[in-house]
Nucleic acid binder design. Structure first.
Lengths: 188, 188
DNA sequence: TGCTATACTTACCGGTCGGTATAGTCATGA
DNA sequence: TCATGACTATACCGACCGGTAAGTATAGCA
């Protein structure tokens, strides 16, 4: 494992456990067994390190999301694919998902939130597109894309949060329940 | 407004905007127009300040929750009362609710999470009791109290989060939808 | 009048923060 | 053989961190 990778994985572990603000670069380079200039050589700043970390881990999720909706299908099928991609990703990267949840809900003016904002918006916009496409098939859901996307993401994250705390399993039946529950809320 | 109150309200504003770890005590006392030892006189430590802040604001919520379930009623009625109490509280204290959401999702080893843990558990336990009581009326929900409570809290917080971002209103129809949507997910 | 507790100040502590200037080391290609 | 550029170590910067020692003003009480 080269130094760049060691820094990234040490940073992920420490950020996920203690939070971005509570972890100093000193602690990261000690855990990665490198020195500070090495970190600054690769990432330029502490925020640059976080951005690189988010970029490297999120790329898998976004790719999975694209694939999940690429095959055609109606709205329920697509949403199942999306939830399935999220659940699979969260199970495979629990530490990172914890971190991204904490960034999602971080105070708006914090540096960590600012770094994660772009990735949060990409998720929101991706889901809005799913609902906009579906609106062509279903007239009574126009003008609600933002709220639908936010609700759906919120429900998905709720179940993932419960899984991360050990109170549920992320299996096929929970995927089905999530989609049915969401759609029931939408269509009265 | 006495110094103690000024410190509490300055701390709430700054913590909610920038996060607990990102705000130093220096900044808080400057905003409150007092000096550092004054803060330590009243609260003992930075964590003590956060605890006092949580205590003072959460007491309203817990009181409202008790009242909402004190009058008898079946499970749907009680859950409506609970959601209603949450929505009312969030509308009245949006800054504080932002803060408590960020603490709820904060990394488990962070000082801020540790301070908020007790209050999070009190909410979870309160809701578990609601479901335990209801289990007497409905046999097929035994052994699931923890998951139900977490799911219901998660859905409620999802809608409050969407409200705080300006994508929804917290009105009676959303209360009804939240309860129906939750119950639908539970009872197939 | 003298004592004590509360409320608050100025001035300072050791330590850590994010970040960097400088001086190399070392593999590669000419 | 030498130069180049990627990479990394030592040592350090000013600013800020949470917290405190020591002292003062005030008010109630004996």
């Amino acid at each position: 494992m080269d130094n760049q990778t060691k820094i990234l994985s040490s940073a992920l572990e420490l950020f996920a456990q203690h939070g971005y603000d509570a972890v100093g670069v000193q602690r990261i380079v000690a855990a990665a067994e490198v020195t500070k200039p090495t970190l600054y050589h690769y990432f330029g700043s502490k925020k640059g390190l976080l951005l690189a970390l988010l970029e490297s881990r999120f790329s898998d999720l976004f790719q999975a999301l694209e694939e999940a909706t690429a095959r055609h299908g109606d709205l329920p099928e697509r949403l199942s694919g999306v939830v399935s991609a999220y659940f699979y990703f969260a199970k495979k990267n629990p530490d990172f998902y914890r971190l991204q949840l904490s960034l999602w809900f971080a105070p708006a003016q914090s540096e960590a939130f600012g770094a994660a904002l772009g990735f949060s918006l990409r998720q929101q916009e991706f889901l809005e597109k799913v609902f906009v496409d579906a609106a062509g098939q279903n007239k009574n859901m126009e003008g609600q894309h933002q709220a639908y996307a936010a609700t759906f993401l919120g429900m998905t994250n709720t179940y993932i949060g419960i899984f991360l705390n050990g109170f549920a399993e992320l299996n096929q039946s929970l995927i089905d329940r999530t989609v049915r529950q969401f759609l029931y809320g939408i269509f009265r």
